[in-house]
Design a protein around this nucleic acid. Structure first.
Length: 899
DNA sequence: GAGCCCACTTAGAATTGCAAAT
DNA sequence: ATTTGCAATTCTAAGTGGGCTC
């Protein structure tokens, strides 16, 4: 770990208005670079050429880039539309022939499914390389709905059957293989010779807690296996209280992290039982008085259409969607399609009303109905709400858990996603489309061969029932908008998820052993003569330094977002001598903006990669794909991919931040220190959240509170003068001035609001007291009493007004002295300071999301170690669910553990 | 070796729950 | 007791990457 100290991933400064402070590259790395790069830029003779001919490329970069770009690496050419176009202008005919061909191939597919009017309008160059994955989506779109639907279903069915057959075969083959494997390898003789080093480590670490050797660990395993069969009736004990040393005392919990690991991890389970999925309740039609109003006329819709209108209606208060043109357009297209199918609406007299204009639709009545329903539900007395929830819980109980290799495990998302309007993030071209109700006929069940297959809902059947032991999912369906697969899997606190989490972090730790070599290599390859290698080296540099995502290809029918490999011309701005400005939308259309200094060679390379004729829309790394990059990374270490770097860098950063913490303060300070470190990691990973709606308001409130305190300070100062006028000379007149930013106007307003607050408090108390009296059967107090009570506020007002007028404040309290007042001042000062810190903290934090890094990137063992070392209860860092998810970490590590 | 299919992790928003403030 | 503000949890979209096919 220490060897790469200088290569700490860059921690960006805290964000203010999206502009981050400049990060710097460690000097030592710079120096290393100088050595690696001959100043004249000639290609290092030692460089291995993996990828075709060496380019005659001037590393000093002023030569036209076109040659290097186009004649280079054989193969490795992405068929991304516009790039081809660029090259066409200046290069070989080979390019010209190939690109259009691939385009033609790609575009031909959509044509064979229903034609899509929108599609054909798209310029040729822009048409997706991917044929639309799912024709279902188009069916939804098309107006002549019925015919294609059936056509499509038939097609799909055939496909499915084929696939099912195939997988069945595969599974059979797998099972045979497994049988053989078992025969050859009795469980007891399982050798751990081939267990990767990384896997051994934790059990070693665990030794601190448990004095177990590998052999006893094995015993544990066998024991668990035996228990499995017997444990079925008695459930697996969940909250083991005896978590340690005397583990020999019967332990029903499955301590898989002490297990050296199965040799075959492609088989995920032997037996699997579960109860399937829960479907959302069927659509409840609106009461007859609630209707969509079209062009002033309330119209009755068929339930299928009404449901869709309801999706939209219920959303009217979310401006994000309703004011989005794409959303509205997509919604209305789908809505209209359903109206077409169901015969549009009928007015009071039963006459047909054709709904053709979105603008003439008034969803207000529907919105108000649903809103009222929401309110009703919210207003329900607590007991009733609880009863309702209990009923639901009971009904769902059977689905909450499954039995996985004999152990009871929580299922994550057993509820089938309800229909609604698709809310794609960012500028998703399909946002607003109707997400259809999932029918049982679309759902595939994965379950053990011996298990009872849960029945499909009455009158329905499952699409398929599988027994695929290589999968961890219990049920699956394909969604109609993007054709995405939706899986029902186990919850985060399950053993399988824990195991893969553990593996992920072990993989990241393993990278420590290779990172120096990898960095050395990519630093060298930054000046490789092979364009593809140079691009790859540059990309790895960016991924390593700035924690960028890999950046897979995306389709035209998705939001236009990028990661490292898919960065485009316009996403990078170069500012000599060596500053790179990133500005692009990443995953979830979250903006990544950063100005950073990079290695000179990287700067030079990016300049080359951006060289004309490249222009907006063209890829920077046009010779690089994520799979090529990952393949390369895999040569250093099995399983190394771009993703691992993010985990590694995040955890490594956290580890070094925590390591350097002195944390001598109290509990709260230690927690704050931890959170600060957490925040730095979150910033590194660019984890953001939208600023909460009330943020500006609550900021103002805090500022106002602070100012209120400062005003009180001024009052105390005047009291000091009141007690001892000589202080004016002693401390200087300035000391007693009201701070300039507290204007006369502000003071008046402030004072008025203080008085108003007082009044309100008095009135409230009065009303309450009266209520009490009434409840006790006594008479209410008269308004006269209220007036008397309110006098207190009047006096306060008078006092303030007088103070403002005269600029003098009479000292309060019994026996006021300068000393006492000074002490008061100090207390006030401290309060102001803490409030200011709180405010800044909140402001700095307004767009940083800490959770994502805590849940996915920071090795939980780091947190556990910190918790133990500094004696902070783990509850301060991990919520209940997180403690369950990270159970393995909490129980496997002592305070000497290192990432 | 591009283009899918598939399975899994990662992500922010929305919703819910809970406790501090009033 | 109610309101408010935030933390926790749920939801599901959007990534990554393996592997298969042609």
């Amino acid at each position: 770990m220490s060897s790469s100290e200088d290569d700490t991933p860059l921690i960006k400064g805290s964000t203010t208005n999206g502009v981050k402070s400049t990060a710097t590259i460690p000097k030592s790395l710079d120096k290393a670079m100088d050595k690696a790069l001959p100043s004249n830029g000639t290609v290092n003779p030692g460089i291995s050429i993996r990828n075709g001919p060496v380019e005659d490329m001037d590393v000093d970069d002023e030569a036209p880039a076109t040659n290097g770009l186009t004649n280079g690496a054989n193969g490795k050419r992405k068929s991304r539309g516009s790039i081809g176009k660029v090259y066409k202008e200046s290069t070989s005919s080979e390019e010209e022939d190939e690109k259009p061909l691939s385009k033609r191939r790609k575009t031909s597919k959509p044509a064979e499914s229903d034609s899509d009017a929108e599609m054909s309008d798209v310029p040729l160059a822009k048409i997706s390389k991917k044929p639309p994955k799912v024709t279902a989506a188009q069916i939804g779109e098309s107006d002549d709905s019925d015919i294609p639907l059936t056509k499509k279903l038939v097609k799909e069915k055939v496909k499915i059957e084929k696939r099912a057959e195939k997988t069945a075969k595969a599974i059979r083959a797998d099972e045979d293989k497994e049988k053989k494997r078992r025969k050859n390898k009795p469980a007891a003789s399982e050798s751990d010779d081939d267990v990767p080093l990384a896997k051994k480590k934790p059990s070693k670490a665990a030794n601190g807690v448990k004095k177990e050797t590998t052999s006893t660990a094995k015993k544990t395993k066998t024991k668990v296996k035996e228990e499995t069969s017997t444990a079925k009736k008695g459930k697996v004990k969940k909250e083991s209280t005896e978590q340690d040393e005397d583990a020999e005392a019967e332990e029903e919990e499955f301590r898989w992290w002490e297990d050296p690991g199965k040799s075959d991890d492609s088989i995920k389970w032997d037996t699997l039982e579960h109860n399937g999925v829960v479907f959302p309740p069927p659509y409840q039609p609106l009461p007859s008085h609630v209707k969509l109003v079209y062009d002033g006329t309330p119209v009755t819709l068929q339930p299928e259409a009404e449901e869709i209108a309801g999706f939209y209606g219920a959303m009217l208060n979310s401006t994000v969607n309703v004011t989005n043109d794409t959303f509205n357009k997509n919604f209305f297209a789908d809505f209209k399609a359903m109206l077409e199918k169901t015969g549009h609406g009928k007015d009071r007299d039963g006459d047909k009303v054709k709904i053709s204009s979105f603008e003439k639709c008034d969803f207000k009545p529907i919105f108000e109905y649903y809103d009222a329903e929401r309110e009703k539900k919210k207003a329900l007395p607590g007991a009733e709400k609880k009863a309702l929830k209990a009923a639901k819980d009971e009904q769902e109980a059977p689905y909450m858990f499954c039995t996985w290799d004999g152990r009871k495990q929580k299922v994550g998302n057993f509820r089938v996603e309800p229909p609604g309007l698709f809310r794609g993030r960012g500028e998703h071209p399909k946002t607003g489309k109707v997400k259809a109700r999932v029918r049982p006929e679309q759902v595939t069940i994965n379950i053990g061969k011996e298990a009872t297959v849960p029945p499909a809902p009455e009158g329905h059947e499952w699409k398929e029932v599988k027994h695929d032991k290589t999968g961890t999912w219990l049920a699956m369906w394909q969604e109609n908008i993007n054709g995405a697969y939706k899986y029902v899997m186990l919850a985060a606190n399950s053993d399988v998820k824990g195991q893969s989490d553990f593996k992920k972090f072990e993989k990241a730790r393993e990278l420590k052993k290779h990172i120096d070599r990898i960095r050395k290599d990519y630093t060298r390859d930054l000046s490789s003569g092979v364009m593809a290698d140079r691009q790859r080296a540059t990309a790895v540099y960016l991924i390593d330094k700035f924690a960028l995502r890999a950046g897979n290809e995306k389709g035209e029918d998705e939001a236009d977002t990028v990661g490292c490999c898919s960065l485009k011309f316009e996403h990078i701005t170069l500012r000599p001598p060596n500053t790179v400005i990133f500005d692009f939308l990443g995953k979830d259309s979250i903006r990544f903006y950063d100005e950073v200094e990079v290695d000179n060679q990287v700067f030079k390379n990016l300049k080359i990669f951006k060289k004309a004729p490249k222009k907006d829309g063209d890829e920077i790394f046009d010779r690089l794909t994520t799979s090529a990059l990952n393949k390369h990374l895999g040569s250093y270490m099995t399983g190394l991919t771009a993703k691992v770097f993010r985990t590694y860098n995040a955890s490594w950063t956290m580890a070094s931040l925590l390591r350097d913490l002195k944390s001598t303060g109290n509990l709260a300070e230690k927690v704050k220190d931890y959170n600060d470190a957490n925040r730095k990691v979150a910033i590194l990973c660019n984890h953001k959240r939208t600023v909460a709606a009330g943020h500006a308001g609550s900021m103002e409130k805090m500022e106002d509170k602070i100012n209120g305190l400062r005003y009180q300070q001024w009052r105390i100062k005047q009291m000091i003068l009141d007690v001892d006028p000589k202080q004016k000379k002693k401390r200087g007149a300035d000391y007693f001035e009201l701070p300039e930013d507290l204007t006369e106007e502000w003071v008046k307003e402030h004072v008025a609001s203080e008085v108003e607050k007082k009044r309100e408090a008095i009135q409230k108390k009065f009303a309450k007291d009266n209520e009490k009296l009434v409840a006790e059967g006594k008479k209410e107090m008269k308004t006269k009493e209220l007036d008397e009570r309110l006098e207190e506020a009047d006096e306060l007002e008078k006092k303030y007004k007088k103070e403002i007028k005269t600029g003098k404040v009479t000292a309060e309290g019994k026996g006021p002295t300068v000393e006492k007042l000074d002490a008061n001042m100090e207390k006030m000062e401290a309060r102001i300071e803490t409030m200011k810190v709180q405010k800044d903290d909140k402001d700095n934090n307004k767009e940083v999301a800490l959770g994502t890094s805590k849940i996915n990137y920071i090795d939980p063992r780091l947190t556990v170690v910190f918790s133990k070392k500094f004696n902070v209860p783990i509850e301060r860092f991990f919520s209940k669910t997180l403690r369950e998810k990270f159970d393995w970490a909490i129980k496997s590590v002592d305070e000497d553990w290192e990432f």
